[in-house]
Write a protein that binds this DNA or RNA. Structure first.
Lengths: 256, 256
DNA sequence: CGAAATTTTGATCACGTTCAACTTCAGTGG
DNA sequence: CCACTGAAGTTGAACGTGATCAAAATTTCG
């Protein structure tokens, strides 16, 4: 894999990360190949295992093919903040690869399937094909926006608004990679994890979910959530979909 | 300015943004020049003016030479969250330039001096010199980390921890661009703004500052803050300095 | 089927908000 | 130069939200 003569598997262009990238940039067959060549290997991680550990170096990018994970920080006061949920198509190792030592940990919430790319290989690719450097910026900016929304939620949205916003954002992200359809989604984690993401206590998150249910905004069955009144939810959560521009293609450099 | 024959002013390499970049990458004189060529103009913005407006397009990067600003979001529930403080050396227009329409506004907290670079010019530069694409990723990752810490603060730090962390982070950022020394800094904004950044009410932020003062951790005189017990503050706020790696230089692509 | 993890419900209490008044300070015009 | 004005900072009292702790109910998994 990644070796010069290895054939590119058919499944590569269906990889959720590749699909996500192709939404934001023009990927020619040479680009698919370049990206493939930079993959060092494939791996599986079992549920509950930490793949990135706070305080230790981590110098690779992992493209999530399947499964869920969470980036989190344990504080000295004993509390935990989930910084974000990592879904298929997401990258693990950002921001870790840019730091001497990781500041956050990443734990698998389910069995994970990943493709591994050493950060150095990716940087080399950026020097050969600058659009991949721009792609990295785009990914980082996307994370930056999710982070900002997360700050807004924990800072100035009450629990109801917070949960509504969380569900809508999660749904949108899952839908892009084909893990949700039709106003239905499945929570990829326990309420304990989600509470730590939202900065709420478990009982209060549970009650808030129940309130949204009795108010007729959602329906729940176990971890299955269905949006009953999507517009009302968007209003409540002040939700705005992500509207990233596309990455200008190389031709742009010459023609513009 | 930016025109082919215009000389590069001496002051350019002292620009706080350039100085900040040079911390993370090797900048040869050709690079200083490339960066200068991409600047379209210089401008001043008066205090209280919004330079980026939520909902409107914004397709440029502004490098802050002097002054302070804040990126914020106004919610339908009437509350405001300051997403981050923008200091000399920071970039305005990230993430705005990557979005069809900006999601956040940016307001000047003091008179601002900026250098303007159209986003398209910067993208062209990235295709000519890929290290600038990587630099953009580095900047975005840095914002992403600040955003994550902000989420942790509003989500799982109590007001005392939150304020301690805020002061330390602000001090560190100001120090890098020579706006703070010797465990002393000046708050770049009113308590109302800072409260909205920390997700606290003004009275409670005020009381928390007072508590840190009476506990002997800081001293205050107007907006001047002095750290009396720096280690204790770092412990309280669970503060960890940013430890970004340097951007691999172009040679790296060939030699590694 | 039994044990453990997760979800749900309940009761109490503290933390931080809210609202209001008062103080201090900076800027401005008389 | 001082009086006036409005903004910013400070303090106080009361209230409400959401945390905490505990226990029960339910689901998941070995």
């Amino acid at each position: 894999m990644g070796s010069f003569y290895a054939p590119i598997p058919e499944s590569w262009k269906d990889h959720p990360f590749v699909k996500r990238l192709s939404q934001y940039m023009d990927l020619g067959s040479a680009d698919y190949e370049s990206l493939w060549r930079v993959i060092e290997g494939e791996t599986k991680v079992e549920k509950r295992k930490d793949l990135v550990v706070d305080g230790y170096g981590y110098r690779k990018l992992c493209f999530v093919e399947d499964g869920f994970a969470a980036r989190y920080k344990l504080l000295r006061n004993g509390k935990r903040q989930i910084i974000n949920l990592i879904l298929p198509g997401d990258v693990i190792g950002l921001p870790g690869s840019f730091l001497e030592r990781a500041r956050y940990s990443v734990i698998a919430l389910s069995p994970l399937k990943l493709h591994i790319c050493p950060i150095n290989s990716y940087v080399q690719l950026c020097y050969q094909k600058p659009q991949f450097g721009l792609a990295l910026s785009w990914l980082a900016v996307q994370e930056m926006i999710l982070g900002a929304e997360h700050t807004i939620s924990t800072g100035r949205r009450n629990p109801e608004e917070r949960v509504a916003h969380f569900l809508l954002e999660l749904y949108s992200r899952l839908k892009i990679v084909g893990r949700a359809v039709n106003s239905r989604l499945e929570l990829p984690a326990s309420q304990e994890i989600i509470s730590d993401a939202l900065g709420l206590s478990v009982p209060h998150f549970n009650r808030t979910l129940a309130k949204l249910r009795t108010d007729g905004l959602i329906a729940t069955k176990g971890r299955q959530i269905e949006f009953i009144d999507h517009p009302a939810l968007e209003l409540l959560g002040n939700y705005q979909p992500l509207n990233l521009t596309r990455i200008p293609s190389p031709h742009f450099a010459a023609t513009n």
